[in-house]
Amino acid sequence: MSERYETLAARIEERFGEQMRRVPSSCGELTYELDKEDLHDIATALRNEADFGFEMLMDVCGVDYLGYGSDEWNTNDATDSGFSRGVEREPVILDESDEFDARRFAVVYHLLSLQHNQRLRLRVFTGVSNPPIMTSVVDIWNGANWFEREAFDLYGILFEGHPDLRRILTDYGFIGHPFRKDFPLIGNVEVRYDADQGRVIYQPVSIEPRTLVPRVIREDNRYSADLKDQVDG
């Protein structure tokens, strides 16, 4: 972590205190977590105050933390269906529950300060509400408009105060939010031209989901912190 970022971190801690919680990062980047109630005030301060001067919002993206850190490789018995054999597929549940896990959906903001040549990442969890709700920052950075529409489209996160929250990337009349982790990769419906009806129709997908390479998590000691120190030292 470079010195400049430490200075910025010190300034942030002095100005916002407990409101912004620093997340340990290995890649020389500065990440903070904050509550969504504080987001609008903190974002305004980060943009307008000379100490920070984050006049640009480079990116807004939704993240779905369902199944973070879980693998799918539990081989019990071999079958003839290839790599998919070890993968247990759970039926797709439509999100009808009243509440989500408080740390399921997050919105991540990437800020850039041209005057100080610094970047900052903010992560805000949406909390338990279904649908997930976040405060819009379009009035602070106008460029957030489409990025928030995208997060709404793909993750179903509603942005309070957004002037024009419509779907942006998916088809007109699309159902569901495709980037949620419980949305299947192959989708739910497919389109084809029906010669009898003389129009394009939707029908349930006719293909089987497949896993070509199962997801595995392996402990790699080369990356463990203790060993790294030994090598360096």
Partner: peptide, 27 residues
């Protein structure tokens, strides 16, 4: 290894960035 990174290049059209979150898996 688990972590997150944002890598940006000066693409011919502007800033092209990849934000990647890893939970320690091979994907």
């Amino acid at each position: 290894p688990e972590g997150e990174a944002y890598a940006a290049v000066e693409h011919p059209k502007g800033e092209f960035g990849i934000y990647m979150i890893s939970d320690g898996a091979n994907k």
